[in-house]
Amino acid sequence: MTELTLETARRAIAATFDEGRAQGLRPLSAIVIDAGGHPLAFERQDGASPGRFVIAHGKAYGAVMLGMPGGAMMARAEDQPYFMAAINGAFGGAVVPVPGGILIVDGDRVLGALGVTGDTSDNDAAAGMAGLKAAGLEGKA
């Protein structure tokens, strides 16, 4: 059984940043939260804007709280904007329903989420998935 620890969270973030550099992405910020929505680790690359913490957290938080990755949240927001507005109201505006919110799973069990921001949302998600894989974690984007 996989456990989400501070060490694995830091490895996932470092590997996400490595992938971002390899792909020539803009400076990234990334957070790993546990299954209860509590931050385990956050880092911001040099040059990333300071507001990225809130965006990265919102991507990860929405994934954990709704049990769906950012891409699925975005599709739901497009199909049923009233639903996502209600959800965001219920969670105090903390949900950012776009790609880059990646569930960290062990089979069907949600361990937490990785939130990545700084480039396009699709690029954020791709870097995050590569980072999770490099850290030995399974993700759902």
Score class of each variant (00 low, 15 high):
77 A>P: 10
136 G>Y: 02
100 G>S: 00
63 A>V: 05
43 E>M: 14
33 I>A: 01
87 I>Y: 08
111 L>E: 06
100 G>M: 04
137 L>Q: 06
78 E>R: 15
115 G>D: 07
44 R>D: 09
86 A>R: 14
24 G>L: 00
116 V>A: 06
21 R>Y: 04
53 F>P: 04
131 G>Q: 04
141 A>H: 08
21 R>C: 07
46 D>T: 11
129 M>P: 04
103 L>P: 08
131 G>E: 04
22 A>D: 12
128 G>L: 07
125 A>F: 07
48 A>E: 02
78 E>A: 13
44 R>I: 11
66 L>T: 10
4 L>S: 03
58 G>F: 11
112 G>Y: 08
1 M>E: 14
81 P>S: 09
42 F>C: 04
53 F>I: 13
105 V>D: 01
60 A>W: 04
15 A>C: 14
61 Y>E: 08
24 G>N: 03
99 P>E: 03
130 A>W: 03
46 D>R: 10
70 G>K: 05
136 G>E: 10
113 A>P: 02
54 V>N: 14
101 G>K: 03
88 N>K: 14
76 R>N: 12
42 F>T: 00
39 P>V: 05
12 A>E: 06
19 E>S: 03
134 A>S: 13
60 A>T: 03
132 L>M: 10
44 R>A: 06
64 V>N: 05
13 I>H: 02
17 F>C: 08
96 V>L: 08
53 F>Y: 15
18 D>R: 03
126 A>Y: 09
53 F>H: 12
62 G>V: 06
4 L>F: 11
79 D>I: 11
68 M>A: 12
79 D>M: 12
108 D>N: 13
125 A>P: 01
24 G>R: 02
70 G>C: 09
36 G>L: 09
38 H>S: 12
19 E>C: 09
61 Y>T: 02
109 R>D: 13
50 P>D: 15
116 V>S: 05
16 T>V: 01
136 G>D: 11
117 T>N: 07
23 Q>N: 15
40 L>M: 14
64 V>Q: 00
136 G>A: 11
73 M>P: 06
93 G>T: 09
65 M>P: 07
126 A>N: 07
62 G>M: 01
12 A>P: 09
110 V>G: 01
105 V>W: 04
55 I>H: 02
120 T>P: 02
14 A>D: 13
104 I>K: 02
127 A>Y: 03
70 G>F: 00
17 F>I: 09
122 D>N: 12
66 L>R: 10
125 A>E: 06
27 P>D: 00
137 L>E: 01
124 D>V: 05
127 A>H: 04
83 F>T: 15
108 D>G: 09
117 T>G: 03
80 Q>E: 15
1 M>H: 13
71 G>K: 10
7 E>N: 15
34 D>F: 00
